[in-house]
């Protein structure tokens, strides 16, 4: 196939290339100006709703949040202002940075633990189950979302409390009671409740599309099963696995329910710090500072994760 053949294949809805002077346009291809117009309309039709959505529901509120972080509160009433005190006061407090590091650590742990727990399940569903069984497994993964997350977390209290079901069962074999509720362990159980089904699904949709011939080739070359998983399957599904872990991190980083109702709010995460800040003195501007730091952190981590996911092999 020549270079001109390849350029001919690229004609159509693909954005128009700059043509070299004197280069012949393939037969039937639209004139450059016309092509640009068609592509522009086509692109606009499909990208405008998303663009508008992002402008209205992300960019505009984000800009408002930035402005809000400089407002003042007088007599429980917010007033537009340019007051940098909110930033210096919040960022100057050790309690903020302790909560920040704690939240970061908890979310990173949740992303690693959830991914590790989810992978064997998603691998088994993708590689070991029949088509029908796989469909049922996907359906079962969706079912938890039928019930409110708050209700699921509340029901965990019955299992995890000192006098709860798990400790009662352990007592029958002479163990416990183990303190599980109002601890980091409780928070982690809540995070798994929130993320595990979603992470399994995301991992699964990535593993399903791993080229089976690569696995067969590895086996033919006498690569062991475990080594095949880690050196063939995982790298091939890297994008999906990374995005699944990233979703887990994002969801848990801002979660308020599990740290409060299973972690006992002790010690507080950033989301609890936000509610504490708004509850007393209506300090929404200071809460906005915390929220903006959280958004900035998530943006950095999301960019890093996506970059890692799409990194070319060997680089």
């Amino acid at each position: 196939m020549t270079a001109s053949d390849r350029s001919g294949l690229a004609a159509g809805p693909v954005p128009a290339r700059r043509e070299m002077p004197g280069q012949a346009r393939p037969a039937g291809a639209p004139a450059p100006g016309r092509a640009r117009k068609t592509v522009s309309l086509y692109g606009l039709t499909f990208s405008l709703p998303m663009l508008l959505w992002q402008m209205i529901f992300f960019l505009a509120p984000l800009l408002f949040l930035v402005a809000l972080s400089f407002w003042s509160v007088r007599n429980f009433r917010m007033e537009p202002d340019f007051n940098p005190d909110n930033w210096s006061r919040m960022l100057g407090r050790s309690v903020f940075w302790e909560a920040y590091l704690r939240t970061l650590l908890l979310s990173a742990t949740a992303a690693i633990v959830t991914s590790a727990v989810a992978f064997p399940a998603s691998y088994a569903i993708a590689f070991k189950l029949s088509e029908t069984a796989r469909r049922w497994a996907i359906f079962l993964m969706v079912i938890p979302f039928f019930t409110s997350y708050l209700v699921r977390v509340y029901s965990w209290q019955i299992f995890l409390s000192d006098n709860g079901i798990i400790n009662a069962l352990l007592a029958k074999i002479g163990l416990g009671p183990f303190p599980m509720l109002n601890s980091n362990f409780g928070t982690m159980v809540g995070y798994l409740t929130l993320c595990l089904p979603l992470v399994i699904l995301l991992q699964l949709f990535s593993l399903i599309f791993v080229d089976r011939t690569l696995v067969e080739a590895a086996h033919n070359l006498r690569c062991g099963r475990l080594r095949t998983v880690f050196e063939v399957v995982v790298p091939a599904a890297r994008v999906g696995l990374t995005i699944a872990a990233l979703f887990c991190f994002i969801l848990t980083f801002g979660d308020f329910v599990s740290p409060l109702y299973l972690g006992g709010g002790d010690p507080p995460t950033l989301s609890i710090l936000i509610t504490d800040t708004t509850k007393s003195g209506q300090q929404w501007p200071r809460a906005a500072v915390v929220a903006l730091v959280m958004i900035a952190t998530l943006l950095v981590i999301a960019f890093a994760a996506v970059r890692f996911a799409y990194k070319e092999r060997g680089r």
Binding site: Q157, I158, N163, N182, L260, G263, G264, D266, P268
Partner: peptide, 19 residues
């Protein structure tokens, strides 16, 4: 000594359950 910080609902449930 503290086992947790509770809102209205959490206070009820933690006392009720003996937590």
């Amino acid at each position: 000594q503290i086992g947790g910080f509770f809102d209205y609902g959490g206070t009820f449930s933690s006392l009720q359950s003996g937590q």
